[in-house]
Amino acid sequence: MLYHFLQLFQNDIPALRVFKYITFRTFTATFTALLLSMALGPWLIQRLREYKVGQNVRQDGPQTHLKKSGTPTMGGLLILIAVFLSTLLWADLTNEHIWITLLSTAGFGLIGFWDDYLKLIKKRSMGLNATYKMIGQIAVSSGVALYIYFNVDGTFMTTISIPFFKAINPDLGIFYIPFVVLVIVYISNAVNLTDGLDGLAIGPTIVAAFSFAGLSYVTGHVMLANYLNITHVPGTGELTIFCGAMLGAGLGFLWFNTFPAQVFMGDIGSLSLGGALGTVAILTKHEILLFVICGLFVLEALSVMIQVGSFKLRGKRVFRMAPIHHHFELKGWEEPKVIVRFWIVSIVLALLSLATLKIR
């Protein structure tokens, strides 16, 4: 909104022309989201305490977590407020990629909010029924898939790019729709499963947001896309601003979520952030690269799948506890050590992913 308002005066005030550049607006969106989350954080945490929206801690997990019981959760509201306000202020609101991403994020956020509401306010221990939760996630991601397949400029391609191989671009055709659903739902739940330690999920999310800010920019820039031999998708450059807002909001939230956490993000935060990352990856045609950039989330989700599958088939567990971050805790790693080392893995995977832009 502010971007469109300032456009009205660019001819009279030449200095305002700087706002037409995506790079500058990305910086402003990042700092706006950071300031909003830092400013609103104490107020929101206090409100959550007043409403007794506190975390319930599993009794069968690491015993060091028991002291976290009652810590305010649903802090993902802080992230969403900062992301949405910053994006609406600084992005080009005539760009449909922005609205697809915002609506997808909001859809997953609503599912997470309802789950948190049932668990924390209504005291229903299991929260939203798993079947209903999955149906909701499939419905939101299907909406994204169907819209981009049938409507986005009439130019959206159903091919996918394979990292490191420039000549391999399989065309999925109509099967691209279920592929999109699988990608978004998987990443959303993977982020949700990772959110088990202070700052563990938001750290890699910040790294992924930074990575996709760069990928969105080069994907939307025809000359850079051609130079790097990646698929050019007109209009996706504006998603750089959304990713910048995620980055800033994530940093602000981390201020309060770092060990020992003053607030947890809850499902409203983890499901929506995963949905946002998945949607951006789809729109920028980096669907496979998403699984490398978000490799830590993928590993966390796989550890749960392996644990459950092994126990059902063999009656034995592979890990001491899943998701895998609890396995390392039970091996004796202190919580901060697990968090920082997992962040390092996330950064290395992001650097590897960005290297694929030149190694093709």
Rank of each mutant, 00 (worst) to 15 (best):
I135A: 11
I135V: 15
A106L: 15
D116E: 14
N95V: 00
N129W: 05
R124M: 13
S125A: 15
K123E: 08
T105H: 11
N129P: 01
L146V: 15
R124K: 15
L93K: 03
S142L: 14
S142V: 05
K119R: 14
F113M: 13
A91K: 09
A139N: 08
N129H: 11
L118Q: 14
G127K: 03
D115K: 05
K133R: 07
H97D: 03
H97V: 08
S104R: 02
S104C: 11
L146Y: 12
S104M: 05
S104L: 07
G143E: 02
S125W: 11
E96H: 13
D92A: 06
G112Q: 04
H97A: 07
G127M: 04
T94L: 11
D116C: 09
T131K: 15
V140T: 07
T105C: 12
L128R: 04
W99M: 00
Y147H: 01
T131V: 15
I100M: 06
T105S: 13
G112N: 04
R124P: 07
G136E: 04
W99S: 01
G109A: 11
D115W: 06
I100Y: 03
L103I: 14
L128T: 04
G109D: 08
L120E: 09
L103Q: 07
N95G: 00
A139V: 12
T101L: 02
Y117S: 08
G127I: 03
I135E: 08
S142N: 05
V140P: 01
H97G: 09
L93R: 03
G127S: 06
I111N: 02
M126W: 12
A139G: 08
Q137P: 00
T94I: 09
N95S: 01
Y132I: 13
E96A: 10
T101S: 08
Y117M: 09
L102V: 10
S141Q: 06
Y117Q: 07
H97W: 09
L110A: 13
I138W: 04
F113Q: 06
S141H: 06
D115F: 02
G143A: 01
L128F: 05
E96N: 12
I111Q: 03
F113P: 07
L128M: 14
G112F: 00
G109S: 08
K122A: 10
G143W: 03
I100K: 01
W114Y: 15
T94W: 13
T94Y: 13
K119D: 13
V144M: 02
W114D: 10
S141I: 04
Y117L: 12
G136M: 03
A91D: 08
L128E: 05
D116Y: 06
G109Y: 07
F108S: 02
